[in-house]
Design a binder for these strands. Structure first.
Lengths: 232, 232
DNA sequence: TAATAAAATGAGTATCGCTCATAATTGACA
DNA sequence: TGTCAATTATGAGCGATACTCATTTTATTA
């Protein structure tokens, strides 16, 4: 017990310092950019000596990588939270697109800094891994749509994924450039486009007299009944 | 006459030196990346003293910017050349997409270096200007399609433009990551998608007597799905 | 050929990321 | 509580590098 409490105290102190360094570094990186950021200033911000940083992080690039890593993990968590309550894939994709582009725009500094890692350190492996994890939110959503029969299975999902993220990335930059906060046209346009290309519109099935049309009508009937019961 | 010849000689010498610096810098930047590139090495490659570089270029970033600028101008010229003989907008867009993604993949080093400018220097204005010029190739192509009646006019062309370049950019990265040289699926998929959404395809119009019913049913289906979720 | 302007040079400077010998702090144990 | 070993912190100093500037070299004109 005593042992645990004591070691925990030490660990807590260390972790607090680590977080202080991270926080200070984030501030300085935001303000000055990667190149402009001085290790001395980061140390001052965390109220420690410059040398202490190197006990916690191997070098400037590693520090930057840690910040980037933290950011993407939080983004992934938030993305899941954003879509978990949404049932229909169309709406979920819409929500994810909205969330993604808004994040890109709000946290543009962070995004640019992450990109800078590619330039600064050859070892972008860590960040790549985190990007993959983030991107999995989309993949899951699409797969769910396929399972439900709302979306056509795609032989190479990454093709659609790149349309999704690539478009949003570029659009975010354009919107920012024009000081425009209205993401809806972009988001709607994108998802409608994906839906037009890969969506299994129910009419496609019913047109050929497929058995699914009756099921759809039944669903419609039940739904409408519920709407009617809602009153006015 | 004599005056002109003589000054021209001097100017030629100066311009030759300038080009030598640029060539050497390009080599070193490619090989070592921006951070890894040493001004001393660039000078050695151009067979001049280190201080001479600074007569021609204000600093390392300016040197990099000049290289980037040269690259994008050449890319723009090549893009125009690639599409000038193609008449139908669909084929021209296809060709541009193919050209763009291939350039991205072949000259990945150059692209990454250009991106690095964003990190290194706040003044990315020059590069942005050149990017705009490049991007105009697409805009012209789309407008031509609208004029011919093959494409629907879009209230905000940049939305489509960002789909185009964003998708190709991301796809190029993915393909490179998988050591895949086959760009056709991406290119075809992209242009078909744009055509499906914005093309005035004659077959769409002639397919059925009630062109709007399928879209209407799709909309109904999505709306009902949303209603169904309200109850649960 | 001499005078002047333009261009080149490279030793020196300022700056910054990082190291390491030394100091301070912490926790276990008697 | 005091002692000792381990952990953590410190900051002067090192090496490296982008950039400067006093001096030299080269080109041009009369």
């Amino acid at each position: 017990m005593t042992i645990q409490t004591r070691t925990k105290t030490r660990r807590q102190k260390v972790e607090a310092r680590e977080q202080a360094i991270l926080d200070s570094a984030r501030n300085v990186f935001f303000e000055k950019g990667y190149e402009g950021a001085r290790m001395s200033e980061i140390a001052a911000g965390a109220k420690i000596a410059e040398g202490t940083i190197y006990i916690y992080y191997k070098n400037k690039a590693a520090l930057m990588r840690a910040i980037s890593s933290e950011f993407w993990q939080a983004l992934t968590a938030n993305a899941w939270a954003e879509i978990e309550a949404i049932d229909h894939p169309y709406d979920a994709l819409l929500a994810l697109a909205r969330f993604h582009i808004k994040s890109l725009m709000d946290q543009a500094d962070m995004i640019d800094l992450t990109h800078s890692l590619r330039v600064v350190s050859a070892d972008v492996g860590t960040t790549t891994e985190e990007l993959k994890t983030y991107v999995r939110v989309f993949d899951t959503l699409y797969s769910r749509g396929v399972d439900r029969g709302d979306l056509k299975p795609h032989p190479a999902l990454w093709v659609v994924r790149d349309v999704f993220f690539g478009t949003l990335d570029y659009s975010a930059r354009t919107l920012r450039l024009h000081d425009d906060q209205n993401v809806e046209p972009v988001v709607t346009n994108l998802i409608d486009g994906i839906w037009a290309q890969y969506g299994n519109a129910p009419d496609t099935r019913s047109r050929t007299g497929s058995p699914d049309s009756s099921a759809l009508i039944a669903r419609l009937e039940r739904a409408i009944t519920r709407v009617e019961q809602l009153g006015e």
